[in-house]
Design a protein around this nucleic acid. Structure first.
Length: 320
DNA sequence: AAGACGAAAGTGGTTGA
DNA sequence: TCAACAACTTTCGTCTT
C-alpha cells in the first residue's frame, strides 16, 4: 500500500519537473493524462497536447488519388467560422504574468477585441458566430471535451442562431447551454456547475438558456444516470479499472432497489459507489478526494454510501 | 494528524394548491 | 405566487485509525 502510494507520488513529480512555461515562466505545470495535455497551472497555456491528428481525414489508394486530394491545413469543421484565418485575443483581463490590467489598459484591450472581431466579419449572424465559436473553443478546451461533443455543441448553436430561434440572450450563456446540451446528448455528462465555472455566465443563466434551447430545438434529452459519471471520476482519480467495474456493478444493483436512485444527485451516487468499490477492492480512496472530484460534499458521499451498504447488504470486510 | 462520522442549521430548486 | 418539502451543503465536535 505504502509503496504504491510512493511510486504514484514519484511519477507525478517526474511529470511535473520537466519544463517551465515559456509564456509566463511559471513552474506549476500540470499533466492531464485524460486529455493528453500539459497545461501551465499559472497562466493556463496548453504546452503540449498529444491527441492532434496531423494526418488527412481522407483515404487514398493510388498516387493519383492522393495527389488530387492533397491540400494543406487542418480539415474544416463546424467550429471554425472563418476557416481559422484569424488571430485571437484572450478574454481574460490579465497580462501574461497574470496581473490584472489597469482600467485604462482594460478599455484599450476591449476596443482591440471589438475591432478585431468587426474587421473580420460583417453580417450580424457571422459576428455572433465568430464570437460564439471563440467562446466555444475556450470552454471546450478548458473542459477537455472530445471534438465530437464540441462539434455537436457548435451545430446546436448554429441551428439556434441561424434560424433565429433564440434572441436577446447572451452569447456566452447560449454557448455554455449548447455545450451542456451536447454533453448530455452524448451521455458524457458534465454538471451545470462545471460548465458555468468556465463560463462568465452564472449557473442560473446557463440553465435558463439550456431550457430554451431544448424547447426550441425540440430535443429529447436522455436522463443522465449515475453510471455515466463513473468512468470520468475513476480516471480523474487515477484509479484502477477494477474499481470501475465494481462501482458499476453496485449501481446496477442499486437500481433494482426502490428509492435508492431516483431523486438523488447522480454525482453523489456515482461517488458513493466508487467509494464502496474502492474499499471492496482494497484500494481505499478518501471520501474527501472522491467528493471533490465529483463536485459534492463528503457528507453526501457518506449518506449515499451508508444507504448503499445498508440496502444492498454489502459487507465491508476488506478480505475476499 | 488525517480520515470518518453524524448532528444541526442553512440553502436553492421543485411541486402542488 | 406562495409555502411545504426533499436533497444537498456548511459547519463543527467527536471518534477511529
Amino acid at each position: 500500500m505504502a509503496s504504491s502510494g510512493d511510486t504514484k507520488k514519484e511519477k507525478a513529480k517526474q511529470d511535473k519537473v520537466r519544463t517551465t512555461c515559456p509564456e509566463c515562466g511559471g513552474e506549476d505545470l500540470v499533466r492531464d493524462s485524460e486529455k493528453g495535455e500539459v497545461i501551465c497551472g499559472t497562466c493556463g497555456l496548453v504546452l503540449d497536447e498529444h491527441r492532434i491528428d496531423h494526418g488527412p481525414e481522407w483515404r487514398a489508394f493510388t498516387t493519383e488519388e492522393r495527389n488530387s486530394r492533397a491540400r494543406t491545413g487542418a480539415p474544416t469543421n463546424y467550429t471554425i467560422h472563418d476557416k481559422g484565418l484569424s488571430t485571437m485575443i484572450d478574454w481574460r483581463d490579465r497580462d501574461s504574468s497574470g496581473r490584472r490590467f489597469s482600467a485604462k489598459q482594460r478599455a484599450q484591450i476591449y476596443r482591440l477585441r471589438k475591432w478585431q472581431i468587426r474587421s473580420r466579419v460583417h453580417s450580424s449572424v457571422d459576428r455572433n458566430l465568430a464570437q460564439a465559436m471563440t467562446e466555444l473553443d475556450r470552454i471546450a478546451s478548458q473542459l477537455g471535451l472530445a471534438d465530437g461533443i464540441k462539434e455537436l455543441a457548435a451545430m446546436l448553436y448554429r441551428k439556434l442562431i441561424v434560424k433565429r430561434l433564440v434572441r436577446s440572450r447572451s452569447i456566452d450563456a447560449l454557448v455554455a447551454a449548447a455545450v451542456y446540451a451536447a454533453c448530455r446528448l452524448r451521455e458524457s455528462p458534465r454538471s451545470l456547475e462545471e460548465i458555468a465555472r468556465q463560463s462568465r455566465v452564472s449557473k442560473k443563466k446557463v440553465g435558463a438558456s439550456y431550457r430554451q434551447l431544448v424547447m426550441k430545438l425540440k430535443i429529447r434529452m436522455p436522463i443522465p444516470g449515475p453510471e455515466k459519471y463513473v468512468p470520468r471520476f475513476v480516471t480523474d482519480l487515477d484509479l484502477p479499472a477494477a474499481i470501475q467495474h465494481k462501482a458499476l456493478e453496485i449501481l446496477e444493483n442499486a437500481k433494482k432497489k426502490h428509492g435508492l436512485v431516483t431523486g438523488r444527485d447522480p454525482r453523489g451516487l456515482a461517488a458513493a459507489a466508487i467509494y464502496v468499490a474502492s474499499i471492496l477492492t482494497d484500494n481505499r480512496v478518501t471520501q474527501r478526494a472522491i467528493a471533490s472530484t465529483a463536485g459534492v460534499t463528503e457528507v453526501t458521499v457518506r449518506n449515499r454510501y451508508k444507504e448503499l451498504v445498508r440496502e444492498l447488504n454489502i459487507t465491508m470486510a476488506p478480505d475476499f
